[in-house]
């Protein structure tokens, strides 16, 4: 059986794929994983996963058949709308302090 080994280098770090090994069962795989990825104390923790249990998705992006830019940062262009809003505000309420409207510009990338 082929087992995939993921290693965490230091506590709190993400696990990264380290390599794979061949072993007859999980007990052997555990012993060999310790030897191959821990004998110099180079790993904080290991995950041992039978290869069949790893479901690989090589093209994880779900295709954009319809426009789905509302889920992305680049789907929001505020620059033009902001300019319009400021002009409108200045025309309709000239007494309104300019400083307070500037909060709108923090909403996202313009």
């Amino acid at each position: 059986m082929i087992f995939e080994i993921f290693r965490q280098e230091r506590e709190g770090q993400p696990f990264q794929h380290g390599g794979s090994l061949e072993a007859p069962n999980l007990a052997f795989a555990e012993t060999y994983a310790r030897e191959l990825y821990g004998r110099r104390d180079e790993s904080f923790a290991l995950w041992i996963v039978p290869r069949e249990s790893v479901e690989e998705i090589l093209d994880p992006y779900v295709a954009d058949v319809f426009d789905r830019d509302y889920r992305r940062v680049d789907g929001y262009s505020l620059k033009v709308k902001l300019k319009e809003a400021r002009e409108l505000a200045a025309k309709n309420a000239p007494h309104f302090p300019r400083e307070e409207t500037s909060a709108i510009s923090d909403l996202g990338p313009a």
Binding site: L21, A23, T31, Y32, E35
Partner: peptide, 9 residues
Amino acid sequence: LEEDVAFSS
């Protein structure tokens, strides 16, 4: 090979 590494240890 895996056993080789283990037995050397």
